[in-house]
Structure formats: structure tokens, C-alpha cells
């Protein structure tokens, strides 16, 4: 019997969950952050791809909560708990500064704000960050395997590595 593995793709401002033996990934993270919450024992994980730090900046109603760190992380936790996940831990990657700040407006430095906002959201929920690969100035593609709890990261000019 063959076991079919599926790779679940998470887009921008999106959040999804996955169970072993499937894996979950998001492609081309720049200043955005990919946050993985996972239950090692049960092989359940979820991935959120946020774009902005704080939903209070939203200038429009009915905005997608998965776009912001402060709203996406609690929702992801809830999704996982509903699927029976317990003892949830976190790994995170992204938050690069893709362009030199120079004279650009504040959004050119959004990476650092996103990192802080995700860390803050996790702290509020008492979720421990096991490992992270954030900052720098390169884009990242990340993939999480709930079987091994490893997050693999690919950047240009770098071999794939895991955290």
C-alpha cells in the first residue's frame, strides 16, 4: 500500500492546518511571516502567512483577520485546538527587509514590526517559540513536516536547512 503525501499550500493572508504524513508550506515569504503552530505528539500543525503586524491599522471594515499577526495567530491556535491539538509549540520564519530602507516610507521596514507582532501574539497565548529564522534581506520558502516537527527553509544562494 502506498501512502499518499499531500503538500498543503498556504497563500498570502491565509491560514491552514495539516496532519501527518502531509506537510504544509508557503512560498516566497519576504517581509511576511510564516508561523507554524504544532502538536508534536499528535502530528497536527497549522501555518499562518501574515502580511501586517496589527489589525488596528486596518482602514477598512470586514478585513481578513488572517492578514494580521495579532488576529491570525489566535485564530490558528483555535483551529488547532478544535482538531484536538494540545501542548502547542511554535516555529517562525520570515520578516526580511527586502529593500534598503533609505528614504522609503515606514512600510519598507515592516519586517521587524511583523517579527515583534508575531512574538508578542505568541507570548500573550503562552506559546513557546522553539526556533525561528527571521530578519535578513532574503526571501524564504518554508515547509513544515508535522511528523518530524522540522521546518525546512530555502533562500536564494543557500542550501535548504531545517530549524
Amino acid at each position: 500500500m502506498t501512502i499518499t503525501k499531500t503538500i498543503v499550500n498556504v497563500g498570502i493572508a491565509d491560514t491552514k492546518t495539516v496532519r501527518h504524513p502531509n506537510t504544509i508550506r508557503t512560498l516566497g515569504l519576504g517581509s511576511c511571516i510564516g508561523t507554524v503552530l504544532y502538536d508534536e505528539k499528535r502530528g497536527i500543525a497549522g501555518l499562518s502567512h501574515i502580511l501586517l503586524p496589527n489589525s488596528s491599522q486596518a482602514r477598512a471594515a470586514n478585513s481578513n483577520p488572517m492578514k494580521y499577526a495579532d488576529t491570525a495567530i489566535p485564530q490558528l491556535l483555535k483551529m488547532l485546538q478544535e482538531q484536538g491539538a494540545r501542548n502547542i509549540k511554535a516555529k517562525m520564519a520570515g520578516g526580511a527587509q527586502m529593500f534598503q530602507a533609505g528614504k522609503g516610507t515606514s512600510f519598507m521596514r515592516i519586517g521587524d514590526k511583523n517579527i515583534e507582532a508575531v512574538q508578542e501574539a505568541l507570548r500573550k497565548l503562552n506559546i513557546r517559540i522553539v526556533s525561528s529564522d527571521v530578519g535578513g534581506n532574503l526571501g524564504r520558502t518554508i515547509e513544515f513536516d508535522p511528523g518530524s516537527s522540522k521546518l525546512s527553509i530555502r533562500k536564494r544562494n543557500h542550501d535548504i536547512y531545517t530549524i
Binding site: 498570502i12 493572508a13 512560498l27 516566497g28 515569504l29 519576504g30 517581509s31 511576511c32 502580511l51 501586517l52 491599522q57 486596518a58 482602514r59 477598512a60 478585513s63 481578513n64 492578514k67 526580511a96 527586502m98 529593500f99 534598503q100 533609505g102 528614504k103 522609503g104 516610507t105 512600510f107 519598507m108 515592516i110 532574503l138 526571501g139 524564504r140 520558502t141 536564494r156
Partner: peptide
């Protein structure tokens, strides 16, 4: 126009920066 901001990288990583401003208003 502002000064140019140039990046050589994955399209996702570069293009999202250009969308940040409007992403505060719309999806």
C-alpha cells in the same frame, strides 16, 4: 516617483512589499 527600490529575489518576497500600502485598505 520615489527613489527606486530594487530587489533580486523570489517574486512573492518582492511583490508583497509593493502591496503593503493598499493591503491596509483592501484585499
Amino acid at each position: 516617483p520615489s527613489v527606486p527600490h530594487l530587489g533580486i529575489d523570489m517574486a512573492g518576497a518582492i511583490m508583497t512589499v509593493g502591496l503593503l500600502e493598499i493591503s491596509q485598505v483592501t484585499d
